[in-house]
Simulated scan of single mutants.
Amino acid sequence: MIAPSQLSEPAVRAFVNAVNAGDRAAFQEALTPGATMSDDGSDRDVAQWADKEIFSSGGHMDVETEADGGRSLVVAYRNDTWGEMRTAWRFEVTADGRVSRFETGQA
């Protein structure tokens, strides 16, 4: 596992730390206004998805590997709804260091 503090991309590091802390404010700060996302290839509303999959269900990311300068992760993701699953995450990061889009799905 890779400790979140060791992740190469600061914006992704902030995202993972916010998820693992269950910190909605930090999660929003890690994202650009109007950030988008997809889950298993389908675009989702970020706020609704995050509430269901992260904040109301104890979501947690254990990073197994990173690639693409830290913008692609393989994660053991767990929450109270689905248990643990191996997932792939891809992030688009803006010049100001925030996530503008993330995509997740089964790895």
Score class of each variant (00 low, 15 high):
residue 14 A to W: 03
residue 14 A to H: 07
residue 80 D to K: 14
residue 57 S to F: 05
residue 9 E to M: 08
residue 47 A to L: 02
residue 29 E to P: 00
residue 42 S to R: 12
residue 95 A to H: 01
residue 22 G to D: 02
residue 53 E to S: 10
residue 54 I to L: 14
residue 16 V to Q: 08
residue 22 G to N: 07
residue 7 L to K: 06
residue 54 I to N: 01
residue 4 P to D: 12
residue 48 Q to C: 01
residue 105 G to Y: 12
residue 93 V to R: 02
residue 43 D to G: 11
residue 82 W to T: 14
residue 33 P to N: 12
residue 40 D to R: 10
residue 93 V to G: 07
residue 1 M to P: 05
residue 101 R to P: 09
residue 17 N to W: 05
residue 36 T to C: 01
residue 104 T to S: 15
residue 82 W to M: 12
residue 96 D to Q: 15
residue 91 F to P: 09
residue 29 E to C: 00
residue 22 G to A: 11
residue 12 V to M: 10
residue 6 Q to C: 09
residue 2 I to N: 09
residue 32 T to S: 04
residue 21 A to G: 10
residue 24 R to H: 06
residue 56 S to T: 15
residue 53 E to I: 04
residue 28 Q to K: 13
residue 40 D to V: 09
residue 17 N to C: 07
residue 86 R to M: 08
residue 100 S to L: 08
residue 80 D to A: 12
residue 70 G to V: 02
residue 41 G to H: 01
residue 54 I to R: 00
residue 78 R to K: 13
residue 16 V to Y: 05
residue 61 M to W: 06
residue 96 D to V: 08
residue 23 D to G: 00
residue 43 D to M: 03
residue 97 G to K: 08
residue 46 V to W: 00
residue 40 D to S: 13
residue 69 G to P: 08
residue 92 E to L: 11
residue 83 G to T: 10
residue 66 E to S: 08
residue 70 G to R: 02
residue 85 M to I: 14
residue 18 A to V: 02
residue 57 S to E: 11
residue 68 D to Y: 03
residue 72 S to Q: 14
residue 17 N to G: 09
residue 91 F to H: 04
residue 75 V to L: 09
residue 83 G to I: 04
residue 41 G to P: 05
residue 80 D to T: 11
residue 92 E to C: 02
residue 93 V to S: 07
residue 9 E to F: 00
residue 77 Y to L: 06
residue 97 G to C: 09
residue 68 D to F: 03
residue 100 S to N: 13
residue 76 A to M: 11
residue 104 T to A: 14
residue 5 S to C: 00
residue 96 D to N: 11
residue 77 Y to W: 12
residue 17 N to D: 14
residue 52 K to V: 06
